[in-house]
Design a protein around this nucleic acid. Sequence first.
DNA 1: GTCGTCCATACCTCCAGAGATATCACGTAG
DNA 2: CTACGTGATATCTCTGGAGGTATGGACGAC
Lengths: 306, 306
Amino acid sequence: MDDRPELPLAQLHAFAVLAEELHFGRAAVRLGIAQPPLSQQIRRLEEKVGYPLFTREPGRVALTPAGEELLPAARQALALIAKGVAAAREAGSGRAGRLRIGFAASLALTVLPDLLRRFRADFPAVRLDIREMTSAPQLSALRAGMIDIGLLREPPTGDADLCFRTVLTEPFVAVVPAGHPLAGQRTVRIEQLAELPFVLLPREVGPPLYDQITALCADAGFTPRVVQNAVEWQTVCALVGTGLGVSLAPASVRRIRLGGVAFRGIDPGAAARVRTRVAVAWRRDDANPVVSNLLAILGQGPESGT
Amino acid sequence: MDDRPELPLAQLHAFAVLAEELHFGRAAVRLGIAQPPLSQQIRRLEEKVGYPLFTREPGRVALTPAGEELLPAARQALALIAKGVAAAREAGSGRAGRLRIGFAASLALTVLPDLLRRFRADFPAVRLDIREMTSAPQLSALRAGMIDIGLLREPPTGDADLCFRTVLTEPFVAVVPAGHPLAGQRTVRIEQLAELPFVLLPREVGPPLYDQITALCADAGFTPRVVQNAVEWQTVCALVGTGLGVSLAPASVRRIRLGGVAFRGIDPGAAARVRTRVAVAWRRDDANPVVSNLLAILGQGPESGT
DNA sequence: GTCGTCCATACCTCCAGAGATATCACGTAG
DNA sequence: CTACGTGATATCTCTGGAGGTATGGACGAC
């Protein structure tokens, strides 16, 4: 069984104030109580400590050596607790604390910067830990409590522990070497990619997105011949730029500025209307108010004018 | 009016223990109470903070961000107060604290070392500030609260604010140059000093002692012709050693080992029975228990065998 | 399903202590 | 001397909260 401190904090506060004023009357006024209760508080405290803390010679109140020893401890403890409670309230309200965000690399150029900027504007005291992760690891990191927020593509549906909300949807674009004949067209039909070598993300990085891309090809009557994998879209585009092959990618890869690679819209038709979804993910039972605050900001929709 | 903290320290303790155990049952056992009261304590604390501090998912208790912020503050504050109270008790009992001692230089060779050694043996945690001061300044320093204990010669009587207790008495000795004819005698009669130049302390350093010495001379039928003042007995003896003159000094100056100076007892008679008193002085109203402890040690009398 | 674990809730007792007012005791200043 | 300032004491009220027991509800293990 632990030792139990039996000093009410209120008494220590009275003690600290009296130690400053060295005058029962004035100290009582500062405390907002009458003088006799203050005398009692101090007496009780002295009883608990076991030794007098003040000398009361008529006319002058002074600290005893024992009081001298207790005073700095009392002051520091009071300050610590006041600060601790304030910090806890900040954290409790979501105005402060920590938020660990995992994001897919391709989003570093689109939704992420805007989101971070707006969140930081509203909650400057929240420490943001952002780390780049592909989609599948985000889901397990969320479940393990390693991150609080995930930003990923093509969220799975019907997850028991996790919630998702779509942040934006975007169509696919064809990624072709700049020198390739297809780069000369304004738009590309998916069938035109049928015979070409493909550069794609490995399926494990994000199965739903991979499946969506292969489904696009299947609808066009072929199975893409993947000659090269890369775990980031930046790399995929760079490889396409070397002429290694072509790819199908979410439209936001257009933001990647690389020489030797061209992005072309998909030709009108069913395929052009297929869009990939970017979603935010969080634990369904996460009570962290910082998470709610971030979701609220996302809920306001993208800032107008940007 | 000051802000008044309204967190009982006991609740913070319960919080800290629960934060370690993360289990209401075990934490309650450690606190020595039943589980429901602990739940209530935590609930009350959460109400006062305004936000939940723990998440209670069935099977697992965990800290919320707010609890995470509060915990270190609570821990530190509890430790601080425990230490502060312990220190106050040490100081209150006189086992720790500070003691400022003023002492006459001539006592540095006699009562002071023994006293300090014995006091430190019993109260090793007390910080001793010792400073050399002549008698008169000791009295004002005591009254002003600059020192707590004085060690001086020939204390005044009937002081309203200060108390004195005689620590030892000692006879006077004649201090003569080693080469002087008087140094050849086993004892000296005071009359034999009548025509010789004197080296003495200035009267201001300790009027009663000075008056006592001149009274000795007056009883022997002469007024000493003082040719040189020195504020410390060490210096007086050194000057006597140079042949400048002779002196009458408390016997403990024999401890001063200097070449060229001889100490000789006073010849039997009334003068040989005159003794100077060394006393300890303290404020009558001083409640500092460290002072009482030192006086108690002095009260035991000098250690036998030394 | 049943049991066991674990925390919350409800309800009760009880008292320490916070607060107030009135008064006393003691010094000091006029 | 009286008046005032200051702190301690006496006495009362009242309530917050600490503690208990009994029980409920949710979940997990088997």
